[in-house]
């Protein structure tokens, strides 16, 4: 500690000596430095704020569109803020997000919750198991197994669509949540291989001392894993859980494959068919208009669809509101970027 301090001081002295050498400017060096610092600070904030606008734009767009009434849409003075706060769009969207006549929003919502939170929870534990094996042990076949994980990460799901669908219909799992939950329970499912890689990376960096101490004290490998290593992996578990929830919630590819009747649609799908109903009406209404004109004068059904979009994404927004810190920090703490 002390030696590093004195080193810092040495560097400072060296720097100030060099600064002295630079003082041939019209302004004193410190003032000039301060001015450039302030300018760079201001431009940093300007750039960041401009970029932030692009990133918040989708949310602003959804909120603003979803609150607009027909009168606001046709009124050219209304750009962003509707004339009156009107939640009628939300009422209609809430009804439509059930997907079919005998379902409500909450049915589709419940299915989405089971699929995303259920799969995420299972993936956390199953991927941790595989990650622990590959992050801590060296065994014959290690390289082969590691390559299998990488391979599973890189295979496009497009390629195995047909056999997977066949497999799940043989099991009579179509229109249930099993095609999401069961592969997740085995460390697969949506981006399962990526999660295994995260755990491998994390376990790989933990010190071996704790584990060895537990083993010497007579704990079995499984007990060591469960009581010592897994609790240590909490940051990685958090990353995997949060990302898995969000990705499952937003995913359209697997639900569209395995949930095939509107009675078993989840939220992202009911939003999709809501728009399907809407767009056919739009086509009829705007068939004479060019694409550019349609964007300006979007028929009011789209405002309802935007209300639907808000309703379908609101649970994730609330989750993000409370866990934002973990999302952003945990990637660092989990050491995904390790080696």
């Amino acid at each position: 500690m002390k030696s590093s301090l004195s080193l810092d001081k040495l560097l400072q002295v060296r720097k100030s000596v060099m600064d002295l050498g630079n003082q041939t400017h019209a302004w004193p060096y410190t003032v000039k430095k301060k001015v450039t610092l302030i300018i760079s600070r201001i431009s940093l904030y300007l750039v960041l704020s401009a970029l932030s606008f692009v990133f918040v734009y989708p949310l602003l767009f959804i909120v603003s569109q979803s609150l607009m009434m027909p009168s606001d849409v046709s009124d050219s003075t209304v750009q962003w803020i509707p004339r009156a706060l009107n939640l009628l769009n939300y009422k209609d969207a809430f009804a439509a997000l059930g997907g079919s006549a005998n379902r409500t929003y909450w049915d589709a919502f419940g299915l989405s919750v089971v699929i995303s939170f259920g799969s995420a929870l299972l993936q956390v534990f199953s991927c941790a198991l595989a990650g622990y094996a590959l992050g801590r042990y060296r065994f014959p076949g290690y390289t082969a197994c590691l390559s299998l994980v990488l391979f599973a990460f890189l295979v496009p799901p497009q390629t195995i669509v047909v056999p997977l669908f066949q497999l799940f219909s043989d099991f009579h799992w179509i229109n249930t949540f099993y095609p999401f939950v069961i592969p997740s329970a085995m460390g697969h499912g949506l981006k399962g291989a990526l999660f295994v890689l995260i755990f491998i990376q994390f376990f790989h960096r933990l010190p071996y001392v704790l584990e060895e101490a537990a083993r010497i004290d007579g704990a079995s490998a499984y007990r060591t894993y469960w009581t010592i290593m897994l609790p240590l992996a909490r940051p990685a578990m958090l990353v995997v859980f949060l990302f898995s929830v969000v990705w499952h919630w937003n995913d359209m590819f697997e639900p569209n494959l395995f949930l095939r009747i509107p009675n078993f649609y989840n939220l992202s799908q009911t939003l999709g068919i809501f728009n399907g109903i809407g767009s056919s009406q739009i086509d009829a209404a705007t068939s004479g208009l060019t694409a550019a004109q349609t964007i300006g004068a979007a028929p009011t059904i789209m405002n309802k669809v935007m209300a639907g979009a808000m309703l379908s994404i609101l649970p994730m927004l609330i989750l993000y509101l409370f866990t934002q810190r973990y999302f952003v920090e945990s990637v660092e703490r989990a050491g995904i970027a390790g080696e």
Binding site: L48, L51, S52, F55, V56, Y57, P58, L59, F61, I62, Q65, V246, W249, N250, D251, M252, L267, S268, Q269, L271, G272, N275, S279, A291, T294, I295, A298, M302, V305, M306, G308, A309, S312, I313, M316, L317, Y320, Q324, R325, F327, V328
Partner: peptide
């Protein structure tokens, strides 16, 4: 932290079905 949170926002909302809807509107 605020800016980081903002930059990550589209991962939460602008993917999947919601993105499709928004693209359809030219968002």
């Amino acid at each position: 932290t605020f800016f980081r949170g903002v930059f990550f926002l589209p991962v939460i909302i602008a993917s999947g079905a919601v993105l499709v809807e928004m693209l359809e509107q030219g968002a």
